[in-house]
Design a binder for these strands. Sequence first.
DNA 1: TTTGTTTGATTGATCAGTCAATCAACAGCG
DNA 2: CGCTGTTGATTGACTGATCAATCAAACAAA
Lengths: 182, 182
Amino acid sequence: MARPDSEGIRRKALVNAAIAQVGTSGLDVTVAAIARQAGMSPALAHHYFGGKAQMLEGAMRQILADYSSAVREGLSGSGDRLASIVSASVAPENFRPLTVAAWLVFYVEAQRSDWARRLLRIYQLRLRSNLRHALRSEGHPRAAEAAETVAALIDGTYLRAVTEPRFDGRAAVARILAAVRA
Amino acid sequence: MARPDSEGIRRKALVNAAIAQVGTSGLDVTVAAIARQAGMSPALAHHYFGGKAQMLEGAMRQILADYSSAVREGLSGSGDRLASIVSASVAPENFRPLTVAAWLVFYVEAQRSDWARRLLRIYQLRLRSNLRHALRSEGHPRAAEAAETVAALIDGTYLRAVTEPRFDGRAAVARILAAVRA
DNA sequence: TTTGTTTGATTGATCAGTCAATCAACAGCG
DNA sequence: CGCTGTTGATTGACTGATCAATCAAACAAA
């Protein structure tokens, strides 16, 4: 064998490249472009992932996993659960332009392919559950309704950040929190 | 000439077909599919629009125009300016699944092509301007901040409606208004 | 005839996926 | 230590399909 765990390394590189390429080129990414950015031949990319769809699915899973772990990490260290969820959502790590762009692409893809819809649904349910829990625990009346509002605000903030050249994460967090705590 | 104003009829049919096809097939629409849905040959579609990009641009312009006229119409007949803007935004006519899907696709496209970014920017600026005006006219303190909140809520509501099988427009309007008037 | 409409056929390019052929490490064996 | 077969890694070349765009020709109204 060439190197130990070559497969793991290659797959990771391909997933990262897929996220970046989807972010820049949208849905019409080519396997060749992903493979090139990951530093290998298109044939090898096909060898490790069954096909293009599986690469994209891997990319979306990675984005979801990164976001989830950021939220979980934030929750564990803070008393203000709501603020930490919102902060993690617009944190620079999850808010890189390429990542946000890839998110958007997956929203589009969710209207056609089952895997994207399923993954997106998991994200939405978990986010809402986290928000309801946070709002209830701080004694918010109508926590369920407020959770919907915050969830929509987070998604809307993502959407606007895509076209906004100047984006102030701090201000966005404050605005979102104010909408349900004012 | 074959029929009077054949060009106008053809172009209108192509734009509508483009919206529908973009909504269902995403970015990778084919000119052939658009032309088929519009009841003509692909070659004729190329004849009336310079190319695929111009068809998509026409589709986005149409969506923007429809949305604008809905908002304008709502504003003219109502005393509650804020409510009429929000209502028009999630009104069934602008909220058809295909239309929302096309919106999303254009958001993605806006990251790459100038025309999409420019059109999207116009929409965003106009929406914010309308919202600020409405909020100021009802004496809202911090109208500018509240306008940002409402704008993000509208966009976020769009985004969530895409994957939400059941969507209650009435409830969404109430929730959005409550977020800035409570 | 002239002018605009319409299409079938074609072209050139692009791309996902496949395959047979190299290449590199390692393990067993003498 | 050298020899060798095995196994996974890697790629260049190819295939089949798809698609945007073009064009010349057919067609219909004025």
